[in-house]
Design a protein around this nucleic acid. Structure first.
Lengths: 145, 145
DNA sequence: CTTGACATTGACACTAATGTCAAGGGGGTA
DNA sequence: TACCCCCTTGACATTAGTGTCAATGTCAAG
């Protein structure tokens, strides 16, 4: 599958796909003419990358966990036992972070719904946010410099 | 509470707080000297903004759902709701993927250990994955025997 | 009164992600 | 062959978020 088709399929632009490749997140095969060819596995990986990016991760962060993004192919997360365990820890951290984000999003949705149903509830201090600075926020918006 | 304190409390920089204000997301009070003063409500709102931004929304998007960010979110939240649900779907896809990945990694570790205790490493993972090119939808099912 | 920490606004810089344009190749199809 | 669409690389533009510096005001402590 060529780039445009893949892009349409993923709902992103060809430009973005090339960008992901440029930063080392993707390595689609090339045909004899130099055209990129995306395999189903490439597409799945790209979909994950797309979601990671859309969820606020930078390509750098995604790159850091790149081995775990491929379809568990042998070559992907391989390495020594230590590597695997390290990888597991990475995944767990990521899942943790995502759960935080998911929870936050759910709360936000609930709040929306509550607001929509009018509910003149004046909650002056539902401040699950007020104290606890590190609450739901994640310290993973660390990107830059 | 002045800006630095608020920033520390939120885990972001004063610069970001000013930025949020500049794009119209926040309107902290000012004291006689022009210093911003963040009320608990301001902090809660800022925390929500911070989380939205960290989860991949742009200030524009957040601004579009501004009414729902205040403590007493009322009115026009419809569009925001759809956005949030979309975001939730993205996050869920990622979490799904990660759970698969985690499981796979765990199995690989077990396999590795087994192999070590037997001398032979049987690597047979046939990439039985090259089938569903379907973008996003290839979350559940598949792999996890 | 001086010092130091923190505030203000405004300008400029940098990075990341993405758009867009240019110049040219590839390859079906009429 | 001509035509059209998609591909390629590379350069440049844009937007967003954030860092950072400059010049200056505020205020509490020594």
């Amino acid at each position: 599958m060529q780039i445009k088709q893949a892009a349409d399929h993923l709902g992103i632009s060809p430009r973005s796909l090339r960008h992901y490749e440029q930063v080392g997140l993707l390595s689609p095969a090339r045909d004899s003419s130099g055209y990129r060819h995306y395999s189903p596995a490439d597409l799945r990986r790209a979909a994950r990358i797309r979601d990671m990016i859309a969820t606020g991760f930078s390509t750098r962060e995604v790159l850091a966990m790149a081995p775990c993004l491929s379809d568990d192919g042998a070559g992907a997360c391989e390495g020594g036992l230590a590597d695997l365990e390290h990888k597991l820890a990475q995944i767990d951290r990521l899942i943790d972070e995502l759960h935080n984000r998911r929870q936050t999003t759910l709360e936000r949705i609930a709040q929306f719904r509550g607001a929509l149903s009018k509910t003149t509830i004046e909650r002056d201090t539902p401040d699950h946010d007020t104290h606890d600075p590190t609450t739901v926020s994640d310290r993973l918006s660390r990107r830059q410099r």
